[in-house]
Amino acid sequence: MNIEQFRDYCLSKKGVTESLPFDEHTLVFKVMGKMWALCSLRRQPTQVNLKCDPERSVELREEFDGLIIPGYHMSKMHWNTVLIEDTIPPKLIIELIDLSYKLVVSKLTKKLQAELTAL
Rank of each mutant, 00 (worst) to 15 (best):
L20M: 09
L20H: 08
L20P: 14
F22L: 07
D23Y: 00
D23E: 02
D23I: 00
E24F: 00
E24A: 07
E24N: 06
E24S: 07
E24C: 02
H25D: 12
H25F: 01
T26A: 03
L27T: 08
V28R: 10
F29T: 15
F29D: 13
F29M: 15
F29P: 09
K30E: 04
K30F: 08
V31N: 04
M32D: 03
G33Q: 06
G33I: 13
K34Y: 09
K34V: 08
K34H: 09
K34I: 06
K34T: 07
K34L: 09
M35N: 02
M35Q: 02
M35K: 02
M35G: 00
W36T: 15
A37D: 03
A37S: 12
A37N: 06
A37F: 07
A37L: 10
L38S: 02
L38V: 10
C39E: 11
C39A: 15
S40P: 03
L41E: 15
R42G: 05
R42K: 14
R42Q: 12
Q44W: 01
Q44F: 02
Q44A: 04
T46V: 15
T46Q: 12
Q47T: 05
Q47A: 08
Q47M: 06
Q47K: 01
V48P: 01
V48M: 14
V48C: 13
N49L: 11
N49E: 09
N49M: 10
N49C: 11
L50H: 00
L50R: 00
K51L: 12
K51N: 03
K51I: 14
C52N: 04
D53Q: 11
D53K: 12
D53C: 11
P54D: 15
P54T: 10
P54Y: 11
